[in-house]
Amino acid sequence: MIQSSLGVGIAFLFLLTMLSLLWWMLHVPPIIPQVVARAHREVEALKSILIPTQGMAYSERGVEVACRLGTEQDATLIFLYVIEVPRTLPLNAEMEEEDKEAKEAISHAEELAALHKMKSVSFVVRSRSAGEEIIKVAREQNADVIIMGIRQHVGLKENILGRTSDIVLRKSPCEVIIDKLPGEET
């Protein structure tokens, strides 16, 4: 004979709680192989992302890719615009147009970062070689990865990567990710 409805409720709750606890305990997540763990953790450890930008559409896609990559681990974005100064001019030469372009490109990149609520720092630097300057900043800022958007359209005889990307790929002190959209078929 049932003694009280409260007792029935407690008995039911007891059984439900016990079974739920044991079910949860016995369902252990699968083992993660070492190589998978390494890949997973190393990407997760990317806390400082350097993004050279040129204000072009492909550069801004690079910024967006960096934002998406860095969101989960709350990475810091380092935006870099290098004004390449020809050797015929002094480094501090008047280059009003280039300065304006740089400010605009950095502003677009910062807007994207703000959209993702990410921390960012920006540099506009003058140099003889954009590639060499990117490497220098990557070293100074201890970047974990460089993400570069590159030109979409490349002529048949042209080098796909271009001079800057080539230098960065060869000399980078850290991981490099190149983002290139598919070109039109020629």
Binding site: M1, L6, G7, A11, F14
Partner: peptide
């Protein structure tokens, strides 16, 4: 032990 608890609450427990 679970059986004692369940049977006890169902058939003998008086709050």
């Amino acid at each position: 032990e679970s059986s004692v608890i369940v049977f006890g609450f169902l058939f003998a427990w008086k709050p």
